[in-house]
Amino acid sequence: MSENDGQRFDRLPATAADREVDGRATREAVVDWWENRFGIPAETFDDHTFWEKGAGKIWIFAGDAPSPIAIEGLGMTFLRTRQEHWKPTTDAVQRFGRLATKNVFELTDEQAERFVDGQDQEIPYDGDWGYVIAAHEIAGDREPIGVGLYVYGELKSTVPKGRQRSV
């Protein structure tokens, strides 16, 4: 097994049997994770490839590219792996979270405003602890805002500083 090289993008192996770099997530595990955690069907990602650059940082790219590739960016940051609880990015949840069927918190207008402002709030919920999708209703539909961490009856906002807003 070789080590992860943080200066370039490497395409994820399809399955564990194809793995050449220690600890690297597989495409199968990434797609399964979204399906298990949020009910987002695996086929959603059929036209995308997944890449690692920087230990544990997984990127999603439409189409394909030669692997490895040493450039500045490839698609969108998607998921943080190589830690006990994998964590989706705000941008990934905004882009793909409409398809989620579970672990979605539907917030009221006031709760949504607090959430996007980076505030934590106590909200009763009987689902799983862990990373959840915070959403609200806008223009007649449910729209994902970002990633929350639900623990001890509290919804913690993980909206990055640069994306927090006081609406």
């Binding site: 790219f61 590739i69 450039i71 500045e72 960016g73 698609g75 969108m76 990015t89 941008d91």
Partner: peptide, 24 residues
């Protein structure tokens, strides 16, 4: 790009006067 949900972008840091096709 990320905020707008773009996933088909490859980002490079070159002087465009000698842009290289080699990485691809």
């Amino acid at each position: 790009c990320e905020r707008l949900g773009v996933t088909n972008v490859a980002v490079t840091n070159r002087d465009a006067r000698n842009f290289s096709l080699k990485p691809f």
